[in-house]
Design a protein around this nucleic acid. Sequence first.
DNA 1: TAAAGATATTTCATGCTTGAAATATCTGCA
DNA 2: TGCAGATATTTCAAGCATGAAATATCTTTA
Lengths: 161, 161
Amino acid sequence: MNQEMRPDPQTRPEPLSKARLRLWLRLLKASRHIEDEVRRRLRADYASTLPRFDVMSALARAPEGLKMGEISERLRVSGGNVTGIVDRLAEEGLAARIAVPGDRRAHRVTLTDKGRAAFADHAAAHEAWIDDLLGGLDPEEVTALAQSLDRLDATLKEPAP
Amino acid sequence: MNQEMRPDPQTRPEPLSKARLRLWLRLLKASRHIEDEVRRRLRADYASTLPRFDVMSALARAPEGLKMGEISERLRVSGGNVTGIVDRLAEEGLAARIAVPGDRRAHRVTLTDKGRAAFADHAAAHEAWIDDLLGGLDPEEVTALAQSLDRLDATLKEPAP
DNA sequence: TAAAGATATTTCATGCTTGAAATATCTGCA
DNA sequence: TGCAGATATTTCAAGCATGAAATATCTTTA
Protein backbone atom coordinates (compact mmCIF):
# COMPACT_ATOMS: atom_id res chain seq x y z
CA MET A 1 0.00 0.00 0.00
CA ASN A 2 2.92 2.34 0.61
CA GLN A 3 5.70 2.71 -1.88
CA GLU A 4 8.69 0.85 -0.48
CA MET A 5 12.08 0.90 -2.12
CA ARG A 6 12.48 -2.78 -2.80
CA PRO A 7 14.28 -3.74 -6.02
CA ASP A 8 11.38 -5.44 -7.74
CA PRO A 9 13.24 -7.33 -10.46
CA GLN A 10 10.00 -8.39 -12.13
CA THR A 11 7.50 -6.06 -13.67
CA ARG A 12 6.69 -3.08 -11.53
CA PRO A 13 3.24 -3.08 -9.94
CA GLU A 14 1.94 -0.49 -12.40
CA PRO A 15 1.50 2.86 -10.72
CA LEU A 16 -0.78 3.52 -13.68
CA SER A 17 -3.62 1.70 -11.99
CA LYS A 18 -3.31 4.18 -9.14
CA ALA A 19 -3.65 7.09 -11.54
CA ARG A 20 -6.76 5.52 -13.00
CA LEU A 21 -8.19 4.94 -9.56
CA ARG A 22 -7.52 8.56 -8.69
CA LEU A 23 -9.29 9.68 -11.84
CA TRP A 24 -12.30 7.58 -10.99
CA LEU A 25 -12.46 8.92 -7.45
CA ARG A 26 -12.42 12.50 -8.70
CA LEU A 27 -14.95 11.82 -11.38
CA LEU A 28 -17.26 10.33 -8.79
CA LYS A 29 -16.70 13.18 -6.38
CA ALA A 30 -17.46 15.92 -8.88
CA SER A 31 -20.43 14.06 -10.26
CA ARG A 32 -21.92 13.39 -6.85
CA HIS A 33 -21.41 16.95 -5.78
CA ILE A 34 -23.42 18.30 -8.70
CA GLU A 35 -25.98 15.53 -8.58
CA ASP A 36 -26.63 16.02 -4.87
CA GLU A 37 -27.09 19.72 -5.42
CA VAL A 38 -29.55 19.18 -8.24
CA ARG A 39 -31.51 16.69 -6.15
CA ARG A 40 -31.58 19.10 -3.25
CA ARG A 41 -32.92 21.95 -5.36
CA LEU A 42 -35.47 19.80 -7.17
CA ARG A 43 -36.81 18.78 -3.80
CA ALA A 44 -36.68 22.22 -2.22
CA ASP A 45 -37.97 24.26 -5.16
CA TYR A 46 -40.29 21.81 -6.87
CA ALA A 47 -41.01 18.98 -4.43
CA SER A 48 -39.65 16.66 -7.09
CA THR A 49 -36.79 14.25 -7.65
CA LEU A 50 -34.12 13.50 -10.22
CA PRO A 51 -35.69 10.22 -11.41
CA ARG A 52 -38.96 12.02 -12.01
CA PHE A 53 -37.14 14.76 -13.84
CA ASP A 54 -35.40 12.15 -16.00
CA VAL A 55 -38.65 10.43 -16.89
CA MET A 56 -40.40 13.69 -17.67
CA SER A 57 -37.44 14.74 -19.76
CA ALA A 58 -37.67 11.58 -21.84
CA LEU A 59 -41.41 12.05 -22.24
CA ALA A 60 -41.04 15.70 -23.18
CA ARG A 61 -38.83 14.63 -26.04
CA ALA A 62 -41.44 12.19 -27.35
CA PRO A 63 -44.69 14.04 -28.06
CA GLU A 64 -46.54 10.85 -28.96
CA GLY A 65 -45.47 9.28 -25.70
CA LEU A 66 -43.35 6.28 -24.81
CA LYS A 67 -44.18 2.76 -23.76
CA MET A 68 -43.02 1.70 -20.31
CA GLY A 69 -40.35 -0.47 -21.85
CA GLU A 70 -39.05 2.38 -23.95
CA ILE A 71 -38.66 4.58 -20.91
CA SER A 72 -36.76 1.95 -18.99
CA GLU A 73 -34.56 1.31 -22.02
CA ARG A 74 -33.71 4.97 -22.60
CA LEU A 75 -33.06 5.70 -18.97
CA ARG A 76 -31.34 2.37 -18.41
CA VAL A 77 -33.30 1.56 -15.34
CA SER A 78 -35.35 -1.50 -14.51
CA GLY A 79 -38.95 -1.86 -15.56
CA GLY A 80 -40.20 -2.19 -12.02
CA ASN A 81 -38.60 1.12 -11.27
CA VAL A 82 -40.42 2.92 -14.07
CA THR A 83 -43.75 1.54 -12.92
CA GLY A 84 -43.41 3.28 -9.57
CA ILE A 85 -42.22 6.59 -10.93
CA VAL A 86 -44.93 6.77 -13.58
CA ASP A 87 -47.51 5.76 -10.95
CA ARG A 88 -46.62 8.80 -8.90
CA LEU A 89 -46.45 11.15 -11.86
CA ALA A 90 -49.88 9.92 -12.91
CA GLU A 91 -51.30 10.36 -9.40
CA GLU A 92 -50.27 13.98 -9.56
CA GLY A 93 -51.75 14.46 -12.99
CA LEU A 94 -48.38 15.10 -14.64
CA ALA A 95 -48.39 12.03 -16.84
CA ALA A 96 -51.04 9.69 -18.19
CA ARG A 97 -51.13 6.09 -19.34
CA ILE A 98 -52.89 5.66 -22.64
CA ALA A 99 -53.99 2.33 -24.04
CA VAL A 100 -52.15 1.12 -27.12
CA PRO A 101 -54.69 0.17 -29.81
CA GLY A 102 -53.32 -3.14 -31.04
CA ASP A 103 -51.80 -4.41 -27.80
CA ARG A 104 -53.65 -4.72 -24.52
CA ARG A 105 -50.45 -5.44 -22.59
CA ALA A 106 -48.81 -2.13 -23.33
CA HIS A 107 -49.45 1.45 -22.34
CA ARG A 108 -48.21 4.60 -23.91
CA VAL A 109 -47.18 7.19 -21.36
CA THR A 110 -47.45 10.87 -22.17
CA LEU A 111 -47.01 14.13 -20.34
CA THR A 112 -50.27 15.93 -19.62
CA ASP A 113 -50.49 19.65 -20.32
CA LYS A 114 -49.84 20.20 -16.66
CA GLY A 115 -46.86 17.88 -16.84
CA ARG A 116 -45.49 19.64 -19.89
CA ALA A 117 -45.77 23.01 -18.20
CA ALA A 118 -44.16 21.73 -15.01
CA PHE A 119 -41.30 20.17 -16.92
CA ALA A 120 -40.63 23.38 -18.84
CA ASP A 121 -40.17 25.13 -15.50
CA HIS A 122 -37.99 22.42 -14.06
CA ALA A 123 -35.81 22.21 -17.15
CA ALA A 124 -35.20 25.95 -17.24
CA ALA A 125 -34.31 25.97 -13.56
CA HIS A 126 -32.08 22.95 -14.04
CA GLU A 127 -30.12 24.65 -16.78
CA ALA A 128 -29.68 27.72 -14.63
CA TRP A 129 -28.46 25.63 -11.67
CA ILE A 130 -25.87 23.91 -13.82
CA ASP A 131 -24.86 27.22 -15.28
CA ASP A 132 -24.38 28.46 -11.76
CA LEU A 133 -22.55 25.40 -10.49
CA LEU A 134 -20.17 25.21 -13.45
CA GLY A 135 -19.85 28.94 -13.85
CA GLY A 136 -16.44 29.03 -12.21
CA LEU A 137 -14.85 27.04 -15.02
CA ASP A 138 -13.23 28.73 -18.03
CA PRO A 139 -15.20 28.28 -21.25
CA GLU A 140 -12.17 26.58 -22.83
CA GLU A 141 -11.93 24.19 -19.97
CA VAL A 142 -15.62 23.41 -20.24
CA THR A 143 -15.33 22.31 -23.84
CA ALA A 144 -12.01 20.55 -23.23
CA LEU A 145 -13.46 18.59 -20.34
CA ALA A 146 -16.56 17.71 -22.30
CA GLN A 147 -14.39 16.37 -25.10
CA SER A 148 -12.24 14.33 -22.76
CA LEU A 149 -15.29 12.85 -21.13
CA ASP A 150 -16.64 12.02 -24.53
CA ARG A 151 -13.47 10.08 -25.31
CA LEU A 152 -13.70 8.38 -21.94
CA ASP A 153 -17.24 7.38 -22.69
CA ALA A 154 -16.15 5.95 -26.01
CA THR A 155 -13.50 3.73 -24.42
CA LEU A 156 -15.98 2.70 -21.75
CA LYS A 157 -18.22 1.11 -24.36
CA GLU A 158 -16.07 -2.00 -24.63
CA PRO A 159 -14.64 -3.23 -21.29
CA ALA A 160 -11.13 -3.67 -22.77
CA PRO A 161 -10.32 -6.56 -25.11
CA MET B 1 -34.50 24.64 -28.10
CA ASN B 2 -33.26 24.94 -31.71
CA GLN B 3 -31.03 27.75 -32.84
CA GLU B 4 -33.09 30.13 -34.92
CA MET B 5 -31.62 33.03 -36.82
CA ARG B 6 -33.59 35.85 -35.28
CA PRO B 7 -31.82 39.19 -34.77
CA ASP B 8 -31.93 39.26 -30.99
CA PRO B 9 -31.06 42.93 -30.36
CA GLN B 10 -30.76 42.38 -26.61
CA THR B 11 -28.18 40.17 -24.96
CA ARG B 12 -27.82 36.81 -26.61
CA PRO B 13 -29.20 33.85 -24.66
CA GLU B 14 -25.71 32.63 -23.72
CA PRO B 15 -24.83 29.48 -25.62
CA LEU B 16 -22.30 28.99 -22.84
CA SER B 17 -24.96 27.61 -20.56
CA LYS B 18 -25.61 24.94 -23.17
CA ALA B 19 -21.93 23.96 -23.18
CA ARG B 20 -22.01 23.67 -19.42
CA LEU B 21 -25.15 21.59 -19.55
CA ARG B 22 -23.51 19.32 -22.10
CA LEU B 23 -20.50 18.92 -19.85
CA TRP B 24 -22.69 17.98 -16.94
CA LEU B 25 -24.60 15.43 -18.97
CA ARG B 26 -21.39 13.75 -20.09
CA LEU B 27 -19.91 13.80 -16.64
CA LEU B 28 -23.02 12.13 -15.31
CA LYS B 29 -23.08 9.58 -18.09
CA ALA B 30 -19.47 8.51 -17.65
CA SER B 31 -19.77 8.45 -13.90
CA ARG B 32 -22.94 6.39 -13.93
CA HIS B 33 -21.51 3.98 -16.42
CA ILE B 34 -18.54 3.18 -14.19
CA GLU B 35 -20.57 3.27 -11.01
CA ASP B 36 -23.18 0.88 -12.35
CA GLU B 37 -20.47 -1.51 -13.42
CA VAL B 38 -18.79 -1.41 -10.02
CA ARG B 39 -22.12 -2.02 -8.30
CA ARG B 40 -22.85 -4.91 -10.61
CA ARG B 41 -19.54 -6.59 -9.92
CA LEU B 42 -19.66 -6.01 -6.18
CA ARG B 43 -23.00 -7.73 -6.15
CA ALA B 44 -22.05 -10.55 -8.49
CA ASP B 45 -18.60 -11.31 -7.12
CA TYR B 46 -18.97 -10.42 -3.45
CA ALA B 47 -22.68 -10.19 -2.70
CA SER B 48 -22.00 -6.65 -1.53
CA THR B 49 -22.87 -3.09 -2.45
CA LEU B 50 -21.18 0.25 -3.03
CA PRO B 51 -22.45 1.85 0.19
CA ARG B 52 -21.08 -1.05 2.19
CA PHE B 53 -17.79 -0.79 0.34
CA ASP B 54 -17.65 2.91 1.11
CA VAL B 55 -18.28 2.39 4.81
CA MET B 56 -15.75 -0.42 5.04
CA SER B 57 -13.25 1.73 3.18
CA ALA B 58 -13.65 4.53 5.69
CA LEU B 59 -13.32 2.09 8.57
CA ALA B 60 -10.25 0.43 7.05
CA ARG B 61 -8.56 3.80 7.08
CA ALA B 62 -9.27 4.31 10.78
CA PRO B 63 -7.80 1.44 12.79
CA GLU B 64 -9.25 2.73 16.05
CA GLY B 65 -12.68 2.90 14.50
CA LEU B 66 -15.10 5.71 13.80
CA LYS B 67 -18.18 6.94 15.56
CA MET B 68 -21.44 6.77 13.62
CA GLY B 69 -21.42 10.50 13.19
CA GLU B 70 -17.89 10.47 11.83
CA ILE B 71 -18.84 7.92 9.21
CA SER B 72 -21.85 9.90 8.06
CA GLU B 73 -19.74 13.06 7.97
CA ARG B 74 -16.92 11.56 5.91
CA LEU B 75 -19.23 9.80 3.50
CA ARG B 76 -21.62 12.76 3.41
CA VAL B 77 -24.67 10.63 3.95
CA SER B 78 -27.38 10.91 6.55
CA GLY B 79 -27.07 9.40 9.98
CA GLY B 80 -30.09 7.22 9.56
CA ASN B 81 -28.50 5.76 6.49
CA VAL B 82 -25.32 4.76 8.31
CA THR B 83 -27.32 3.02 11.03
CA GLY B 84 -28.79 0.60 8.53
CA ILE B 85 -25.57 -0.14 6.69
CA VAL B 86 -23.61 -0.72 9.89
CA ASP B 87 -26.45 -2.89 11.21
CA ARG B 88 -26.07 -5.18 8.24
CA LEU B 89 -22.29 -5.23 8.35
CA ALA B 90 -22.48 -6.12 12.02
CA GLU B 91 -25.03 -8.87 11.41
CA GLU B 92 -22.56 -10.45 9.04
CA GLY B 93 -19.69 -10.11 11.46
CA LEU B 94 -17.78 -7.68 9.29
CA ALA B 95 -18.01 -4.72 11.65
CA ALA B 96 -18.62 -4.27 15.35
CA ARG B 97 -20.01 -1.52 17.55
CA ILE B 98 -17.84 -0.83 20.57
CA ALA B 99 -18.93 1.23 23.54
CA VAL B 100 -17.17 4.56 23.98
CA PRO B 101 -15.87 4.82 27.58
CA GLY B 102 -16.87 8.33 28.53
CA ASP B 103 -20.09 8.60 26.51
CA ARG B 104 -22.95 6.16 26.67
CA ARG B 105 -24.67 7.71 23.68
CA ALA B 106 -21.92 6.97 21.20
CA HIS B 107 -20.50 3.84 19.66
CA ARG B 108 -17.21 3.33 17.95
CA VAL B 109 -17.48 1.16 14.86
CA THR B 110 -14.55 -0.98 13.77
CA LEU B 111 -13.89 -3.59 11.15
CA THR B 112 -13.54 -7.09 12.55
CA ASP B 113 -10.66 -9.28 11.36
CA LYS B 114 -13.11 -10.87 9.01
CA GLY B 115 -14.21 -7.45 7.80
CA ARG B 116 -10.65 -6.33 7.28
CA ALA B 117 -9.85 -9.42 5.24
CA ALA B 118 -13.01 -9.06 3.18
CA PHE B 119 -12.31 -5.42 2.47
CA ALA B 120 -8.75 -6.16 1.35
CA ASP B 121 -10.21 -8.51 -1.25
CA HIS B 122 -12.87 -6.08 -2.37
CA ALA B 123 -10.44 -3.18 -2.62
CA ALA B 124 -7.97 -5.13 -4.73
CA ALA B 125 -10.75 -6.26 -7.05
CA HIS B 126 -12.11 -2.73 -7.21
CA GLU B 127 -8.77 -1.34 -8.29
CA ALA B 128 -8.50 -4.01 -10.96
CA TRP B 129 -11.99 -3.25 -12.26
CA ILE B 130 -11.23 0.44 -12.56
CA ASP B 131 -7.94 -0.37 -14.22
CA ASP B 132 -9.87 -2.47 -16.67
CA LEU B 133 -12.64 0.05 -17.28
CA LEU B 134 -10.30 3.01 -17.74
CA GLY B 135 -7.63 0.99 -19.52
CA GLY B 136 -8.58 2.34 -22.91
CA LEU B 137 -7.55 5.87 -22.03
CA ASP B 138 -4.02 7.17 -22.73
CA PRO B 139 -1.96 7.71 -19.58
CA GLU B 140 -1.58 11.38 -20.48
CA GLU B 141 -5.29 11.74 -20.83
CA VAL B 142 -5.83 10.06 -17.50
CA THR B 143 -3.72 12.59 -15.65
CA ALA B 144 -5.06 15.50 -17.70
CA LEU B 145 -8.63 14.53 -16.94
CA ALA B 146 -7.87 14.03 -13.27
CA GLN B 147 -6.38 17.51 -13.13
CA SER B 148 -9.32 19.09 -14.90
CA LEU B 149 -11.73 17.38 -12.58
CA ASP B 150 -9.71 18.61 -9.65
CA ARG B 151 -10.10 22.15 -10.89
CA LEU B 152 -13.79 21.56 -11.43
CA ASP B 153 -14.11 20.32 -7.89
CA ALA B 154 -12.33 23.42 -6.63
CA THR B 155 -14.76 25.76 -8.40
CA LEU B 156 -17.65 23.66 -7.17
CA LYS B 157 -16.80 24.47 -3.57
CA GLU B 158 -18.35 27.90 -3.72
CA PRO B 159 -21.60 28.06 -5.73
CA ALA B 160 -20.48 31.18 -7.57
CA PRO B 161 -20.56 34.63 -5.92
C1' DT C 1 -28.49 20.79 41.27
C1' DA C 2 -32.40 21.11 38.28
C1' DA C 3 -33.77 22.68 34.02
C1' DA C 4 -32.43 23.91 29.38
C1' DG C 5 -29.93 23.15 25.53
C1' DA C 6 -26.67 20.44 22.85
C1' DT C 7 -25.15 15.82 20.97
C1' DA C 8 -25.23 10.99 19.29
C1' DT C 9 -27.91 7.78 17.54
C1' DT C 10 -32.07 5.32 16.13
C1' DT C 11 -36.65 5.05 14.27
C1' DC C 12 -39.86 6.09 10.80
C1' DA C 13 -42.23 7.29 6.44
C1' DT C 14 -41.38 7.90 1.75
C1' DG C 15 -39.27 7.18 -2.53
C1' DC C 16 -35.66 5.11 -5.63
C1' DT C 17 -33.50 0.85 -7.37
C1' DT C 18 -32.74 -3.84 -8.56
C1' DG C 19 -33.67 -8.54 -9.99
C1' DA C 20 -36.81 -12.16 -9.77
C1' DA C 21 -41.39 -13.93 -9.88
C1' DA C 22 -46.14 -13.31 -11.28
C1' DT C 23 -49.77 -11.71 -14.81
C1' DA C 24 -51.57 -10.81 -18.91
C1' DT C 25 -51.43 -10.82 -23.62
C1' DC C 26 -49.66 -11.69 -28.11
C1' DT C 27 -47.54 -14.58 -31.97
C1' DG C 28 -46.16 -18.28 -34.48
C1' DC C 29 -46.37 -22.83 -35.57
C1' DA C 30 -47.86 -27.79 -35.39
C1' DT D 1 -57.34 -24.16 -33.71
C1' DG D 2 -54.57 -24.60 -29.70
C1' DC D 3 -50.73 -24.19 -27.21
C1' DA D 4 -45.68 -23.01 -26.47
C1' DG D 5 -42.75 -19.39 -26.24
C1' DA D 6 -42.07 -14.46 -26.49
C1' DT D 7 -43.35 -9.71 -24.75
C1' DA D 8 -45.08 -5.93 -21.78
C1' DT D 9 -45.90 -4.78 -17.47
C1' DT D 10 -46.66 -5.15 -12.48
C1' DT D 11 -45.69 -6.99 -8.00
C1' DC D 12 -42.56 -8.03 -4.45
C1' DA D 13 -38.65 -8.22 -1.13
C1' DA D 14 -34.54 -6.12 0.16
C1' DG D 15 -31.34 -2.44 0.50
C1' DC D 16 -30.14 2.49 -0.01
C1' DA D 17 -31.16 7.44 0.87
C1' DT D 18 -33.22 11.42 3.03
C1' DG D 19 -35.11 14.45 6.54
C1' DA D 20 -37.82 14.71 10.51
C1' DA D 21 -39.16 13.03 14.90
C1' DA D 22 -38.07 10.33 18.91
C1' DT D 23 -34.61 8.66 22.58
C1' DA D 24 -31.00 8.82 25.35
C1' DT D 25 -27.36 10.99 27.25
C1' DC D 26 -24.25 14.64 28.11
C1' DT D 27 -23.18 19.66 29.49
C1' DT D 28 -23.98 24.13 30.82
C1' DT D 29 -25.96 27.44 33.29
C1' DA D 30 -29.12 29.83 36.36
